[in-house]
Amino acid sequence: MQTIPGTSVISAAYLIGEIGDDMSCFDGMKGISSWAGLCPGNNESAGKRKSGRMRKGNKMVKTLLCEVANAAVKTKSQFKGKYQGLVIRRGHKRSIIAIAHKLLRIIYTVLSRRKAYFDPDINYEELMVRRNSPRWLQMMVKYNMV
């Protein structure tokens, strides 16, 4: 879970402690979103929109995911672009809730598939080369390969 942008060691541990690592107890992404209280509300009848309040859910998970969402929108990831698109129309708080909902769906997928998260907007190969190139150059100089 620490591969998800904005997620620290402590927040990942708290989320695992609250949610658990067995995703079979939830009825899919909609079930975990409903349990956490992050599913979007929609109360519309005859074309008239009424209150779109969110339901009550696990307060600890909701709070943690909002903190992770605030950290994730400050990284260079898909969450930053999503947030910038939403904040203009919806405002900061509703945008953070939307990002927290997206993060919860990603956490569900990561935990159910048991694979690390890969952001589509990040070029991991370029990051690895940029991070390791000084060390590679030092080794080439050390062994007279240049």
Rank of each mutant, 00 (worst) to 15 (best):
K76Q: 11
V129I: 13
I99M: 02
A69Q: 05
L86G: 02
I122N: 03
C66W: 04
A72R: 09
G31V: 00
N42C: 06
C66T: 08
F26K: 04
G17Y: 04
L65A: 13
S45G: 02
I97R: 07
E67L: 11
V129A: 06
F79R: 03
Y108D: 05
R131K: 15
S51K: 07
K48Q: 12
I19K: 00
K50L: 14
S24C: 01
F26A: 00
E126T: 09
W136D: 14
R131F: 05
G17S: 14
T109C: 09
G91Q: 07
S33I: 01
M29F: 03
K102D: 01
I19Q: 05
S51Q: 09
A46P: 07
C66Y: 04
T7V: 15
E126W: 03
L38G: 09
M140L: 15
Y124A: 05
P134E: 13
A100K: 08
M54W: 00
S77D: 07
R94L: 14
R55V: 12
A69I: 02
D27K: 11
D27N: 12
K82H: 08
M60Q: 09
L64N: 01
A100M: 06
H92R: 08
E18C: 07
A100H: 11
I88D: 12
R135T: 08
K102L: 01
G31K: 00
D27T: 06
G52Q: 13
I19Y: 04
N42H: 02
A98M: 12
I88S: 15
